[in-house]
Design a protein around this nucleic acid. Sequence first.
DNA 1: TAGTGTCT
DNA 2: CCGG
Length: 231
Amino acid sequence: MRAGRAVPRITGYIRRGFWGRKDVKGTNLTELPWRDVRGVRVFDGFLTSAQQADMVTDVRAIVRAAPLIQPVTPRGQPLSVRMTSAGSHGWITDRQGYRYAPAHPSGAAWPPIPESIRAVWAAVAPQARAPESCLVNWYGPAARMGMHVDRDEADPSQPVISISLGDDALFRIGNAARGGTTESLWLRSGDVLMLSGTARLLHHGVDRIAPGTSTLLDAPGRINLTLRVVT
DNA sequence: TAGTGTCT
DNA sequence: CCGG
């Protein structure tokens, strides 16, 4: 992979004090820098190890209620990732197309989005509407995600927030139109990324997983959680 | 057109 | 049947 690494650049700060921390008076608040890659906001090391572990526990509960599926594209090509969802709407990819659906293909309702995950949205995008969908993507060591745009949400003024858990992933950010130059960055366990504003409709994808770079999960691979407002 | 794919 |  010879795509250029993004140079970290501090462009702002948020307050970090969510999640039961003793931050009522602001005494324990810490500033969390983000960096900006083509308008995509990257929060490196957003989650502590303990927060990541709690979140994995919650993800396992989601997967028990709504088992992972290996989707196929409308042309019948299997995706390399396995997917499930939480929330009022779940992402479905099958021969019928791409869409948000109110239930798992089994017919069971999607489980609710756990508080541990919603807390990240509230901290990073406090002005946004509540998230309606949490897509759970399981990347095995060889899984990838082709370049695409998140364009199936009714209100793209609402952000998309991505949480990385487990092994490192090489994430690529492109342009509004397909093609052109791109920038790549490694996402590590506990990192949070937000597509909003001018970056909301940029092409993006995952080129590679680096197995064995995290000890968070039992098996090599990566979990990505993507929070969205759908309606 | 596909493309949340596959290939050089 | 493209280009990153």
